[in-house]
Amino acid sequence: MTDTFTFTIDGVQVEAEPGQTVIEACDAAGVYIPRLCHHPELPPVGQCRLCTCKIDGRMLGACVTPAARGMVVESDTEALNEDRRRLVEMYFVEGNHFCPTCEKSGDCELQALGYRLGMVGPQLSHLWPKREIDARHPDIYIDHNRCILCSRCIRASKLLDGKSVFGFEGRGIEMRLAVMAETLDETALAAADRAVSVCPVGCIVVKRRGYHVPYGKRHFDETPIGADIEARRKG
């Protein structure tokens, strides 16, 4: 039996096991911390910074910080949530996210976080980048306009699918998702791959499944993002 220990987040006592990160322990205890790049099946990378919390007085990513006995974590504060709202806003204006016509509307984690954090609309200027859509694959298309560079597909393709279909190219504002071939149809990517289904936004989309679930009945139309985690909380 493992030697469990406890720490607190926003005054709530959380039980953790050795080797768990803060976000893993909080997920198990039913305490939701916002995130975009983190996925429970993938190793953490700390890219999106939405899970940043004040941990023992320091600003640290909850997905990459090991849980420790007696640590004091602050997450659901107005200051941290304001930072998260601004980060989500930056994701929206950096790409082209027109929710009313997006296939992932209602199932999009970026959109759902905007709602959860109370982001009414972007106040920053839109960059309106011109990015291509690769629709040459028979079953999948990639809309680079909606990519948020979370790297989930990169990690899932390599570690879960064993294919290494995706990677990053460029730096800074020019950084983009790339495929390890001239075009997507020349890769081994399949519609059933986890690299496709882990995409949190409308970037990697399976063809011929559009709008099979109507608006109003999609995942985040019925429950807010994080509700599945909060349902685990006892008491």
Rank of each mutant, 00 (worst) to 15 (best):
M1Q: 12
D3R: 02
T4E: 15
T4L: 12
F5D: 06
F7D: 09
I9A: 13
D10E: 02
V12W: 08
Q13V: 15
Q13G: 11
Q13W: 01
V14N: 10
A16D: 05
E17G: 05
E17A: 14
E17R: 13
G19S: 07
G19Q: 07
I23M: 12
A28C: 04
A28T: 11
A29M: 05
V31W: 01
Y32R: 05
Y32C: 04
H39C: 05
P40Y: 02
V45P: 00
C48H: 04
C48S: 12
R49S: 13
K54R: 15
I55E: 13
I55P: 10
D56A: 01
G57I: 05
R58V: 00
C63W: 00
V64L: 11
V64T: 15
P66T: 00
A67F: 01
A67R: 03
G70E: 15
G70Y: 11
M71K: 10
V72F: 01
V72M: 06
V72S: 11
D76L: 04
T77P: 11
E78D: 15
N81F: 14
E82I: 04
R84V: 04
R84I: 06
R85G: 12
R86Q: 13
R86D: 14
V88Y: 07
V88R: 04
F92W: 14
V93S: 10
N96I: 09
F98E: 14
P100A: 03
K104W: 02
K104R: 15
S105V: 06
S105W: 05
C108R: 01
C108H: 00
Q111P: 02
A112L: 03
L113E: 00
L113G: 04
L113Q: 03
G114V: 09
L117D: 08
G118C: 11
G118T: 11
P122V: 07
H126A: 15
L127Y: 13
W128G: 08
P129H: 10
P129Q: 09
R131I: 07
I133F: 10
I133H: 10
D134V: 00
D134C: 01
R136T: 14
R136V: 08
Y141P: 03
D143Y: 09
D143I: 09
R146D: 02
L149I: 03
L149R: 03
C150A: 10
I154R: 00
K158E: 15
K158A: 15
G162H: 00
S164W: 00
V165W: 05
F166M: 11
G170P: 06
G170M: 10
R171W: 01
G172Q: 02
R176W: 06
R176Y: 08
A178I: 01
V179A: 06
A181W: 03
E182Y: 06
L184C: 05
D185L: 01
T187G: 05
A188H: 10
L189Y: 06
L189M: 08
A191N: 02
A192C: 08
A192N: 13
A195M: 06
A195K: 03
A195N: 09
V196Y: 04
V196F: 03
S197Q: 08
G202S: 12
G202E: 05
C203A: 15
C203H: 09
K207L: 06
R209Q: 14
G210K: 12
G216N: 09
K217L: 14
R218M: 06
H219T: 14
D221Q: 03
T223C: 00
T223I: 01
P224R: 13
P224D: 02
G226D: 04
I229Y: 03
I229Q: 01
E230T: 13
E230Q: 12
A231N: 11
R232C: 11
R233G: 00
K234I: 15
G235E: 11
